[in-house]
């Protein structure tokens, strides 16, 4: 048999080398035992499930490195997430179709510690893959989500919008007197929930008053926006919904249908760092109660909101 040409031998040697090295570098799908994920940050990922068995323990991989600030322990993480079952490929839930990013508290008490590993220390804008036994893929202390058997495995893809202090706000304390049909606003201390008072006649159209002009990135349609907000039915004191009463900032998609009536109109073109007072008449969106992502308000009631724009990110 004739000896192979030198070029062929070199090619064969490189192929063998690649076969040995690439899996170790994480370039070989089966060697890593993880699903293949396609798609851009901010869009619902396409996930191809492997045909081989899932790993016994949870595994995490940063698929796309973002360019934003690094998330830290103690922050709440605003993220999009897509959740599926490895064994069946069945899609469970996702925030992309809901057009409602979710807020996760990573203190080991709210969601599984596997979420900590996937989401802490990531740059905002990163896409992260998490594979986990179902008992450690969602809630803490080993409970599988509803309609998931305890022996299944979950595949989660996160798009990290950012990490935020639970009391993050666009601006500090201050008082803004009532004027021009707008109620007064008082923020007593850093991180305190704005309190609205001195309501006049009910609004007849959407009103927008910029309390603090932001100097950050502008808000654009279709992007994600992260805010603290509080909302009251016109003339009342107790908020019907408020991020201050929950975990901290929530993420939203800059689309009229993904937000409460009046919000999109009030936010478009504003900048990060803005504090905005919005008044909305009861007939602004007749019959509306909630968005697909369960962001809701009392039906056909006039309302007032204070929106603190904390961050924005393309999606």
């Amino acid at each position: 048999m004739a000896a192979p040409p030198r070029r062929a031998r070199r090619t064969a040697a490189l192929a063998v080398l690649a076969a040995l090295i690439l899996p170790a570098l994480g370039c070989g799908g089966k060697a890593e035992n993880i699903p293949q994920v396609k798609g851009e940050f901010g869009s619902r990922p396409e996930v191809a499930m492997p045909t081989y068995p899932p790993p016994k323990d949870a595994r995490m991989k940063v698929l796309v490195e973002g360019e934003g600030p690094v998330t830290r322990k103690g922050q709440v993480i605003v993220t999009d997430v897509d959740m599926r079952i490895w064994e069946s490929g069945r899609a469970l839930m996702d925030t992309y179709r809901l057009e409602q990013p979710t807020t996760a508290v990573l203190d080991g008490q709210h969601v599984s510690r596997t979420w900590d590993q996937a989401l802490i220390g990531r740059k905002a804008g990163s896409r992260v893959l998490l594979v986990s036994p179902a008992t450690h893929g969602f809630g803490p202390h080993g409970m599988a989500p509803a309609q998931v058997t305890p022996t299944d495995h979950m595949v989660l893809v996160f798009d990290v919008i950012g990490g935020y202090d639970p009391k993050a706000q666009a601006a500090g304390p201050g008082t803004w007197p009532a004027s021009g049909g707008f109620p007064s606003v008082n923020v007593k201390a850093p991180g305190a929930e704005p309190v609205m008072a001195d309501f006049g006649a009910e609004p007849r159209k959407v009103g927008v008053r910029t309390l603090v002009e932001g100097k950050g990135a502008p808000l654009k349609a279709g992007h994600s926006v992260v805010m603290q907000y509080t909302g009251v039915v016109w003339g009342t004191k107790t908020p019907f919904n408020s991020t201050y009463l929950r975990n901290g900032p929530n993420g939203f998609v800059m689309k009229d249908a993904a937000m409460l009536p009046g919000w999109f109109e009030a936010l478009e073109g504003k900048r990060v760092g803005s504090r905005i007072l919005v008044t909305v008449p009861g007939n602004e969106r007749p019959g509306f109660t909630h968005t697909k992502g369960a962001l809701g308000m009392p039906k056909d009631k006039p309302a007032a909101y204070v929106l603190d724009v904390v961050d924005t990110r393309p999606r």
Partner: peptide, 14 residues
């Protein structure tokens, strides 16, 4: 009843 919820805040209740 066991419910797992996304939305603005991740939650799980039994």
């Amino acid at each position: 009843i066991h419910a797992s919820v996304l939305g603005t805040d991740v939650a799980d209740v039994t």
